[in-house]
Design a protein around this nucleic acid. Sequence first.
DNA 1: TATATACTATGATATTTATCATGTTTTAAT
DNA 2: ATTAAAACATGATAAATATCATAGTATATA
Lengths: 225, 225
Amino acid sequence: MMKCEQCIVKQFNALKSLEKDDLIRISGCKTSKFIKKGEILFREGESINGVYCIKEGVCKLTKLSANGKDQIVKLVVRGDLLGQRSLVTDEKSNLTAIAVNEMEICFIPKSEILHDLSKNANFSLDMLQDMAKELRIADNIIVDMAQKSVKQRLADVLIYLDQAFDKDERGYVGVMLSREDYANLVGTATESAIRILSQFKKEGYISTTGKHIKIIDLEGLKRIE
Amino acid sequence: MMKCEQCIVKQFNALKSLEKDDLIRISGCKTSKFIKKGEILFREGESINGVYCIKEGVCKLTKLSANGKDQIVKLVVRGDLLGQRSLVTDEKSNLTAIAVNEMEICFIPKSEILHDLSKNANFSLDMLQDMAKELRIADNIIVDMAQKSVKQRLADVLIYLDQAFDKDERGYVGVMLSREDYANLVGTATESAIRILSQFKKEGYISTTGKHIKIIDLEGLKRIE
DNA sequence: TATATACTATGATATTTATCATGTTTTAAT
DNA sequence: ATTAAAACATGATAAATATCATAGTATATA
């Protein structure tokens, strides 16, 4: 099994601020596993008791709203940590994590992370900075949700996917989401998401083959209003 | 001028984790001032270079959306800190802060806070916990913005104001907002906010006298859908 | 106290979005 | 390969919300 101190993924998250000794210690008690598409890592209301480091794959963080629909709050990708928020506040998870595709993840027990938070100021600061950035992003999403039309928000999602995920050989976006996922990302009815994607296709902004989507006119999408 | 080490307000924020020595040091370089209703503490895009501690009053944090409307992202009250996010990431402010009523605030320069963050693990952890809580709240607002109707969101705002602000002698909510503020909190047109408040009044959930609002039927508001 | 200005209110209408219905296509399982 | 289930698509309609128009009301300021 890959050791933390040799793992390249940690460069993308706060674990990069740990010393070699600490990484070796963490490596000794971490567990690693593969998750199939659609599997649930943890549910809203469950205790996580540690932090997941995403080594490969994508997962969606969702929350069930009062009207019974799942809202996707964010997508978590290779290199991201998962569960820091609940760990720090010692609360149950506020969100449900579901694999969007095949994933490989490592789980680091709570006690190890807390140990480092209390001893290593760099690590704490790095974690604090990550959380601060997440907060800025969340604030911006609030503004977009409140002020932009469904069509704009869906265009935004496509723009985000285009820049955040590698494309395959044929230029298709490197993550495949269902139309329902798109709807749950922008907060609309599935039919509305389908309709707007059809319209984007008709108007030449994107091309689609099943769940595969290719962005054809990124600048056009940015001009949607 | 009130000294930090004697100030009761710090109990409500991360500054409570500092030792007396540190508080005295901070007290020595803080500045304190009064802000009039409507005044701007700082604008989106400006460098804050420190942290504000709210000793008295309320301010709104807004962001201008692409369509030219201000969205109120949150209300900040007595005891809250302001500017930690930008301080930690060393970014310009993402939001504009505007006083909702008469305020008294203290400003602590960046260098002092950074000094404590690097030396005091308790302080860092406390800050981290505050930010983690803010993040949870922001995630929940995203879900509400995406999934709830305007009417539900406005009811939620009233419920929040009812529990977050003291009432005056006659039972009116202790903070006065314009109808436009209500609209900018829920992300709707001012006319829509006015209409829904009128409806709530007609249906006996609230009573209003100008900007003064009294919650009459809290449970009723919670049942709005 | 007069007067301008901002805020509140409400009707009429247009636009956006959700819901319901129905059929097709894709995917997964036997 | 066959069949059931899930996902996609689209029309028709209803409901929610925005926009435009107009007028009353409060508030500040000269």
